[in-house]
Design a protein around this nucleic acid. Structure first.
Lengths: 187, 187
DNA sequence: TCTGCCATGTAATCTGTTACATGATTCT
DNA sequence: AGAATCATGTAACAGATTACATGGCAGA
């Protein structure tokens, strides 16, 4: 997870010129299913990257609205990004608080945990339907073969979101069912 | 992710009395597929929890080896844990650096990314075989129905590890194949 | 009028990582 | 002789989260 945001920003800036504000908005939509960060983090990181000469910006006056800082990647920014791509990624350990909660499974809090699982199922299903909505509207079967490479990457990321949320939902159903079965038998 | 380690430790201490050292070891094995932390974090957090009266410890002399601090949860620790279980968990956003790398997909670095995907496939397969090894040795089909509730939780956590790594591997194969297809067609 | 959007920022705090440190014992 | 294990800790730094802050404009 080290230096992660730095390379996320360089990656986005290598695709297009964009403001910090718009990067944060991206995290709420397209890029959101594999990365996100708060505006504080983004602004802080962008000024650090500017100091290091990896990005720079032009202030754009807009009359009514406050000035924009439109960022772009520099040549040495591109170089650092390329170097990073060539380093093998070390995999970061999983951290799942829902499983920690599950470890507290005892007769006296089965109910709370089942509620938590139900909530998780609802959230996951909602997210799943958002994803498949995007898949249908943006990428119909016939278009996929015609996608440009960088759009293909976005599509594959979406597919990742869909497959992992689907298997998550499966697991949630199975564990909920398993726990309910126990409770029923021990009455 | 806020205050997460605190509740991980309280959860573990609610199951059994244990030293900081052994908690760290647990992160390398059983609990490892849904949480981990370094010994520095664990020791820092344990002394903080001691100050707050949520846990306490007894020093155990061992003659040859250094003294142990065997921790146990206090009544107010149990209370805080229970309160936490009753709060609905907010889901933490996904962060996946591999997808960030993929976003850099362009003709000139297809090769690097395919290598990265291959590496990811190998790692994932290795982890998958570890998990299914555990499943086979610890939980044979006939035993599952007979598991105690708290052992059941560990089993369900393992199932989560297995289903998510399996779908991850599926996706890795699909995307690798898709990218290779493009490269082949554009020659 | 109040909420939300546009667009940026600072400050305080908490969490996580890396490096350094001790000191005896057991295994190779 | 050298490495690994047992068992604990400090210090410095990097990363993430939360709260606080500005100030105009658009729409309900």
């Amino acid at each position: 997870m080290h230096m992660a945001l730095k390379f996320v920003l360089l990656t986005l800036l290598d695709r297009e010129r964009i403001t910090g504000y718009d990067i944060v908005k991206t995290f709420d939509s397209a890029v959101g299913y594999f990365w996100s960060a708060s505006h504080q983090q983004v602004y802080r990181e962008l000024s650090k990257l500017t100091d290091q000469g990896l990005v720079n910006f032009t202030s754009v006056k807009q009359g009514d609205k406050p000035d924009k800082k439109v960022y772009r990647i520099t040549r040495s920014g591109k170089q650092e990004l390329q170097d990073w791509l060539h380093e093998p990624a070390k995999e970061s350990p999983t951290k799942d608080l829902l499983l920690v909660k599950l470890l507290n499974l005892r007769a006296d809090n089965v109910d709370v945990l089942l509620e938590e699982l139900d909530r998780a199922i609802k959230n996951a299903q909602q997210r799943a339907s958002v994803y498949s909505g995007i898949e249908k509207t943006y990428y119909s079967k016939t278009q996929i073969a015609a996608l440009e490479l960088d759009d293909l990457a976005l599509f594959l990321a979406l597919r990742k979101g869909i497959t992992s949320i689907t298997s998550h939902i499966d697991w949630l159903h199975q564990t909920s069912a398993e726990i309910k079965k126990r409770v029923a038998n021990n009455n």
